[in-house]
Design a protein around this nucleic acid. Structure first.
Ligand SMILES: [Mn+2]
Ligand SMILES: [Mn+2]
Ligand SMILES: [Zn+2]
Ligand SMILES: [Zn+2]
Lengths: 126, 126
DNA sequence: TGTATTATTGCAATATTGTCGCAATAAATA
DNA sequence: TATTTATTGCGACAATATTGCAATAATACA
């Protein structure tokens, strides 16, 4: 299944890159400017996740958020990191904080989803 | 808002206590034997959460799971602990592993939701 | 350049999860 | 027993996300 370049794909990625945060489909649709169907945005996001371009966070509001993946070897963000969801400004940021846990090797770990919810440092000031 | 004792409430709590795991509304409804309305189960669960009897986990399948709270001063389980969701047996267990993270004090932390997803040790054997 | 292949898209329908309003029921209290 | 009101069942509703299908368009190739 070879990928094709489309304006839609690039617009979605561009929104996520410039925001620097994790965004929901709805937030992306608002920011993106051009008119793209909801289902299409979801399909674009899911394909980016499959390809390792984006990663998916499920917050405790039950919604999916998507953020650009930072490669591990760039030593900027570890593979499994915490996320912070601000209830005021409705954003999710990838924290540089790595997730550490020890688990008996009987377990097979496939995904790690860690979200801290509260008020972010910007919103806490005001 | 004084609570009243009902068969429904006790049945829901009993299912969760005997399972020893975190369960979704659907899983509870299947196990509970008696016929209880879906909305009622949710209301019972939400009230138990408000009262500190249960705690809520949102897994990366986007669903809410509920588990009996273990008091912190019993030194059995810490306040914020990891959870493991098994994709095979569809259960979530509260891990004894505490969640550690450091965050600048500018942030206000309200909730912590950490779920590791994969195959649990029981299912990994077979 | 023109054509064939098929990945991508828009649209509508669908599935799933969870909440809410309202009237009926029943637990607690006197 | 009578009163108060927390709880319940039911249906409707909201929100998120996915899927089938036909139309469109990106890519490869003659
Ligand atoms: Mn992240
Ligand atoms: Mn738990
Ligand atoms: Zn904020
Ligand atoms: Zn299992």
């Amino acid at each position: 299944m070879k990928r094709r370049n489309t304006a839609t794909k690039e617009a979605v990625l561009s929104v996520l890159q410039s925001s620097g945060k994790a965004m929901s489909q709805g937030a992306i649709e608002k920011k993106i400017g051009i008119d793209i169907n909801r289902a299409t945005i979801y399909r674009v996001l899911n394909r980016y996740c499959d390809d390792g371009v984006l990663h998916r966070i499920v917050a405790d509001d039950g919604r999916q958020y998507f953020a650009v993946c930072i490669k591990c070897d760039e030593h900027l963000k570890p593979l499994h990191h915490f996320h912070f969801r601000c209830e005021k400004c409705e954003t999710i940021e990838c924290l540089p904080e790595p997730v550490h846990f020890s688990l008996s090797n009987d377990y097979v770990v496939k995904r790690v989803n860690c979200v801290i919810t509260g008020i972010c440092k910007d919103c806490a000031k005001s």
